[in-house]
Design a protein around this nucleic acid. Sequence first.
DNA 1: ATGCTTTATTAACATATGTTATCGTCCGCT
DNA 2: AGCGGACGATAACATATGTTAATAAAGCAT
Lengths: 183, 183
Amino acid sequence: MTKTHTPDSPLNIDWDKYAHLIKEKTVPAKTILLNEGDVSRYGYFIKQGCLRLWFNNKGKDITFQFFFENEAVSSVESFRSGEPSLFSIESIEPTTVYAISKKNFEQIFMSNPGYTAFIQETMVKRMSHYSKLFMSYIKNTPEERYRELLENAPHIIKRVPQHYIASYLGITSVSLSRIRNRM
Amino acid sequence: MTKTHTPDSPLNIDWDKYAHLIKEKTVPAKTILLNEGDVSRYGYFIKQGCLRLWFNNKGKDITFQFFFENEAVSSVESFRSGEPSLFSIESIEPTTVYAISKKNFEQIFMSNPGYTAFIQETMVKRMSHYSKLFMSYIKNTPEERYRELLENAPHIIKRVPQHYIASYLGITSVSLSRIRNRM
DNA sequence: ATGCTTTATTAACATATGTTATCGTCCGCT
DNA sequence: AGCGGACGATAACATATGTTAATAAAGCAT
């Protein structure tokens, strides 16, 4: 698994300076910020709370990533290219985000060379993150992946309901419950 | 799974022009081009043949990606940063590659703006590739992944020995044999 | 306080995969 | 032609997970 959290960067942006370009938005738990199939119009940055990415598979929803405070969240492909998002973005807890439209995103980030380098580096890191996650899936059993998660990202286990974690591990909540039982 | 092959680009480079910067190398099957744990000194581009990426996990080797003609292959992290590679690169068939040292790579690619854009786009695509592969792992059974492979990348199944494919699917060759039997 | 929803545990049964081992075939090499 | 290794199929048994269902505890809203 490797570090699932570890924000891709601290990204200390002077939000006040760009206040006029950014909307602050607070939503209760279980609120959809982006629906699978829709085009992503906003990039998000989490001020407070917790989001998950998930998609529908044969009627069941499958969670594949979690995000917390100070992390940037978006359906990158959709936000970039205007294609329908392959997944939904939903709040797990009551959450406050900064929402940035594509136009304003470009105004803030593309103008500043320091930021564009940051964006590129973020891409490389995210690629590395997914490749490691993928390797972990091939080589480890669900139980081993759960142990890894406990070790590398205990904050996820503390804050996220267990059935989302089971889904993230690729198993049912019943099976995760059994794994916890025999540990 | 989505398209596992589909080279990230055609990349029509005029090899002759850079012949003095590139080594052509031909190796028999089962030859290691880069050993897990070593630092990647060369990037490769396949002229003819087929390579696999794999790593050792508790004494068993696990294959996680295949590459064919006209595809660029490297241990990106290691090649970029000089850190030990997390995996090995090995030939499956007798294979001919173009090998480019880091220094010459920079000379060819970093000098040409058209190429740097290409490199960035390759990164985004590879990120997307891994994220889709990862999603496929969470949502599908081994049998479903095999069916996807049959549909989206039949050339892999035709050219690669079955036990490598089993490993790639995250199962044993015995289990893959059973899956094929009952299809 | 009450009632509803969400979440987690447990049981029972069916099923798929892992493990180990054997066997047969094919291919490449000498 | 002959030999040895690589490859794939199959069997038998152990084990983990999926599925369905029942139950209980905790959280939240009215």
